[in-house]
Design a protein around this nucleic acid. Structure first.
Lengths: 195, 195
DNA sequence: AAAATTATTCTGACCGGTCAAAATATTTTT
DNA sequence: AAAAATATTTTGACCGGTCAGAATAATTTT
């Protein structure tokens, strides 16, 4: 019962994710989402309060999945360098997935710049990401791999800034083959900063 | 004759800039723009082909102004370090102006991720910014201030990634007082990377 | 059959683009 | 220089189309 409802919600969120990625936040209609999910329009209205509720849930769902993925990748490694590598590797998954996510993510950030509800969800995502970065830096400092001059909290903010900055610039340039370049250079910049 | 028409266009673009900053790209109607400009609805259609034409012109106009401002600031300094400082200083003008621009810019990037017309204009902006960065790095290397290990072209991409990454993260956090933090740390990261 | 779920239809609001007419500015004629 | 003619600019009403949300109907589950 509860299970089914949860599945339906996720089915709709997946559809919304694809629809927004294809068409853009504002262009997507509830009808689009229903079509992508292969259900009728009423279903969406049944499981979500309204359109904004779908989108807020979508942002929460998608950022949480990203975070889980990153966290999982990092937690499997032991040294700071390995963890940093794993982090960057998990972030720069592949052109296809990065494109899909950052298209949607840019839409949401544009919304978030004016709507506190979106900002709040994004902040939660940031905090999760910062935590990953902070732990890596702190470990590296304990190991002696990273400089003790920098502050782990500050560094964690920068790490995410560099990552997002690189992937956004990559997306805007619209050349898949540059994915590797940004991944590599992003890693190098962060490493040089931490050492 | 020609002068008046150009003034009108700019008047409308200024109005559109403010309107988009306040309400967001997709929410803004031609009526809004007319209202902000203090003219009637028909005027906008008289000076621009259609809504998209207004927005494409706006992106071009606003990014060009930003670039001119950055370029002017950097060109007044002589050493690489001074130029870099001036660059960062001109980018991180003040919370008010940064907020206004990045709100609009995020909207346009969201559009650009799906619409090649916007991407093309943004690429022009990128190339201008990269040129500023590249020249600073090259100068620094000639001076011996910056490491010769890095590639000026690569570094210029990273400089802009870090700047945009920082300002976007700052905007999302919605705390004006952090502006100084991101400005300072952004500069430090870039400097450490270049040395 | 009652309740829960899904599908369809309706409605009111809104938007972009058009257009004809009015207002204003410019040029030509007297 | 005044008047007439012409060109340019501005206005706001209008239309076709779309969408979110509500209401309603149909179907499935319990």
């Amino acid at each position: 019962m509860k299970k089914k409802a949860e599945e339906r919600r996720e089915q709709i969120l997946r559809a919304a994710f694809q629809a927004v990625s294809d068409k853009g936040y504002e262009t997507v209609t509830l009808q689009d989402i229903a079509d992508y999910a292969g259900v009728s329009k009423g279903v969406t209205n049944y499981y979500f309060k309204n359109k904004e509720d779908v989108f807020l849930s979508l942002l929460e769902w998608v950022t949480d999945r990203i975070y889980q993925h990153e966290h999982q990748a990092v937690s499997q490694k032991t040294t700071a360098i390995e963890k940093l590598e794993a982090y960057i590797h998990s972030v720069f998954i592949d052109p296809e997935k990065n494109k899909k996510f950052y298209k949607v993510y840019l839409d949401f950030m544009a919304q978030a710049s004016r709507n506190p509800h979106y900002r709040k969800i994004n902040l939660k995502f940031y905090e999760n990401c910062w935590k990953i970065g902070r732990d890596i830096v702190a470990l590296g400092q304990k190991e002696g791999t990273f400089s003790s001059d920098i502050q782990a909290d500050t560094a964690s903010k920068m790490i995410r800034s560099i990552i997002d900055g690189c992937l956004i610039q990559w997306l805007m340039r619209d050349e898949d083959h540059l994915h590797e370049f940004y991944k590599k250079t992003c890693y190098e910049v962060i490493l040089k900063y931490l050492k």
